[in-house]
Nucleic acid binder design. Structure first.
Length: 682
DNA sequence: CTCCTCTTTGA
DNA sequence: CAAAGAGGA
């Protein structure tokens, strides 16, 4: 058969056949070639960690078998450049159309935009869709068309949009396969020998794949959802939805989650079930936070590496790899923090509550650079998700307008009694403290010598003393903050005097990641606690054995770093991105409206003229500034790449330059991104 | 029981 | 900084 006219469906983080708009479009258009391209190098620092790769592997196998039962198979490609691979697939199959679903992380935004340009130039019709969000980021804005700046306002708007999120699509009944005889799959390798042992254990606790995700969803909605509110405080409650890894890989559609939960909501509201209603609202809020993380990433595509509030760049972080290591190993001397870190290391999982505890401790008490912590989460979490994690860490670090105060330190001792009142969680993950009475379990340093002795605890020997005292941390935090404000004021004064461009140029970029990011093998977190009577489903199943597996990744990372740093001082995004820089900038820096547009659809955004004007000048200057400073390493549209004119970053700046968010500056690219409407008319 | 203030908490 | 909750008058 001839491949002419067939279409490519490019799977990424939408590994499902149900409610997959790109797949549905491909099926509608005729013969389909389903493709997955594994190009981790494109992700720069944020290549998936071991557990994340394990998940991906299972999920792809699952997708492949679903596709086979529908009539086609998944073509897999190993690549360092997704777009070249797409072109190869086009060439070898004669495909004339490409369909994919949107992603919103900074790297994908650049890559996907370029994919559209390149493939379109090759005569391939490209369409992309929303499969990951209730509403696209550009659909949600205030009266004046500006993006929201606080979560509450954003979420309120989402819940009161004039139209509902799209209803979920059913899976295709049958897929006609395109001709892939000249397009062989590459064998993708997601784990090496040394990782297999650890990974085998994951399989006993988790079942990746879209139909399993669907089961997990049903189980949760008919089970733990009603108790969600009641249980959310418990550190070790097994009543979270456990959907996050499924959602990360798009195995289940948020829209489906939303619709099903809504049905329960109506039901419980009618029954007058207050607890149920509260639970639903809370759960929906966590869905909302996921939406918001994409929203923020889209509007501020640098949020994974730069604080959204500019003053924080002057904060004198404690650059202490010893602290960092102690935190990773769960040896800070604060039982709740240490228990969390050991659970994370052992299982790749952490209750949301504990994520807040350990990250807040990291930022406020240890005062380590938040990006280090975020990177460690990225490497170890099963549900590692760049947008969500960036949002979480920015929130903790007080760099969101509605985030918590920077100067308020949460005391792990008190949090311990709040989230783990009986110390069960601590005892499970810190066997060395297992015999300590509950009265002292969250502050062993205060325990009488006799108590410690009876419990077999020797502080400083088999369990550490606190590496930083809370009082000392408070003092240091106050000093650091006042220093920060001074520097910030000085910089602002410099700007006003015109003594310098005021671009914050002194800043040489974020503090580099330490070379060694892994937990040492000689300090294996000890497994489960033998004296704990409670046996939970996840306890022994999720604990991987210790291997040296991660050393390999570390090597890779190091070499990547070295390679990139020859080219650039900031190795955030792979150097291949530089290629895109010139053409993109050319196009983007033009203020005129795009020439390519569907005339039936008005532009998504019409900016009030006054704002556009004031914005243009800012945009120009920032483009100038960007050129010399960054070498185009950051996604090129990043508004604050050069001068922090973002609303988050400098409030005074008559606010408007402000509006130089990606979407306001470059409405044309959104036009390109928002193909759904186009596809519906044609 | 209501009102007021103090405390806690929040994405 | 504001809303909600706790505790006291």
């Amino acid at each position: 058969m001839s491949g002419g006219g067939c279409s490519i469906v490019w799977f990424r983080r939408d590994l499902r056949v149900e409610d997959n708009p790109a797949l549905a479009a491909g099926v509608r258009a005729g013969a389909v070639i389903a493709v997955f391209i594994w190009a981790p190098e494109e992700e720069g620092h944020y290549q998936p960690g071991r557990v994340s790769r394990w998940w991906l592997k299972q999920s792809l196998a699952h997708l492949d078998s679903s596709l086979r039962s529908l009539g086609t198979a998944l073509v897999t490609k190993r690549s360092t450049d997704s777009i070249s691979s797409l072109l190869e697939v086009v060439k070898s199959t004669g495909a004339t159309q490409l369909f994919f679903n949107h992603l919103y992380d900074p790297i994908s935004l650049v890559r996907d935009h370029r994919a559209k340009e390149v493939l379109t130039a090759q005569g391939v019709a490209v369409r992309s869709y929303n499969a990951d969000l209730l509403y696209e980021p550009w659909e949600v804005h205030d009266e004046e068309g500006r993006p929201f700046r606080t979560f509450a306002a954003f979420w309120e708007r989402c819940l009161s949009m004039p139209y509902d999120p799209e209803a979920p699509l059913l899976p295709p009944k049958r897929i006609i396969s395109g001709d892939v005889s000249r397009c062989p799959s590459d064998n993708l390798i997601f784990e090496d020998e040394s990782e297999k042992g650890s990974n085998a254990l994951l399989a006993r606790a988790w079942s990746p794949g879209w139909s399993n995700a669907d089961k997990a969803l049903t189980t949760f909605i008919n089970g733990a959802l009603i108790e969600y509110s009641k249980n959310r405080r418990k550190a070790d409650s097994a009543t979270t939805s456990f959907l996050s890894p499924h959602l990360h890989f798009g195995e289940v559609s948020v829209r489906k989650v939303f619709h099903l939960v809504r049905i329960k909501q109506v039901l419980w509201a009618n029954e007058g079930n207050r607890a149920g209603e509260e639970s639903v609202n809370l759960f929906l809020k966590s869905i909302g936070l996921r939406e918001y993380s994409r929203y923020m990433s889209f509007n501020h595509p640098y949020s994974h590496e730069r604080p959204l509030l500019g003053h924080l760049k002057y904060f004198p972080w404690v650059v202490d790899e010893g602290y960092f290591k102690a935190w990773r190993q769960g040896r800070t001397g604060y039982p709740l923090v240490d228990a969390g870190m050991r659970e994370l290391w052992a299982t790749g999982w952490l209750h949301d509550r504990i994520r807040v505890v350990v990250s807040s401790f990291f930022v406020k008490v240890l005062q380590l650079p938040w990006r280090w912590g975020m990177k460690y989460f990225w490497d170890t979490l099963l549900d590692a998700d760049l947008e969500s994690d960036a949002l979480g860490w920015q929130y903790i670090s007080g760099t969101l307008p509605d985030g918590r105060e920077f100067d308020r330190i949460d005391n792990p001792q008190f949090e311990g009694y709040k989230f783990d009142p009986n110390g069960e969680y601590v005892r499970r993950w810190l066997p060395e403290l297992a015999r300590l009475p509950t009265d002292w379990i969250h502050h062993p340093w205060n325990a009488p010598e006799a108590v410690l002795q009876a419990a077999g605890v020797e502080l400083g020997s088999n369990y550490p003393l606190p590496i930083v005292g809370i009082d000392a941390a408070k003092v240091r935090l106050e000093e650091a903050l006042s220093q920060m404000w001074q520097l910030e004021a000085a910089s602002r004064a410099a700007v006003e005097n015109g003594t310098e461009e005021g671009l914050g140029d002194s800043e040489s970029g974020p503090i580099a990641f330490p070379q060694d990011m892994q937990v040492e093998i000689d300090q294996p977190p000890i497994r489960t606690n033998p004296t704990t009577a409670v046996v939970r489903r996840y306890e022994d199943q999720m604990v991987p054995s210790m291997t040296s597996s991660l050393l390999r990744i570390e090597d890779e990372e190091t070499s990547t770093d070295l390679r990139i740093s020859e080219e650039s001082s900031r190795a955030e995004v792979p150097i291949t991105m530089n290629v895109t820089q010139e053409p993109l900038r050319e196009e983007f820096s033009q203020p005129h409206m795009p020439t390519v547009r569907n005339n039936n659809n008005p532009p998504q955004f019409n900016f009030p003229l006054g704002r556009r004007n004031s914005e243009d000048s800012t945009a120009e200057s920032s483009i100038g500034g960007r050129r010399e400073r960054d070498g185009g390493v950051v996604p090129v549209w990043s508004p604050s790449t050069s001068n922090f004119t973002d609303p988050f970053v400098s409030e005074d700046n008559n606010g408007l330059g402000s509006s130089s968010s990606y979407l306001q500056r470059h409405p044309e690219s959104h036009q390109l991104l928002n193909w759904r409407r186009l596809s519906q008319t044609g």
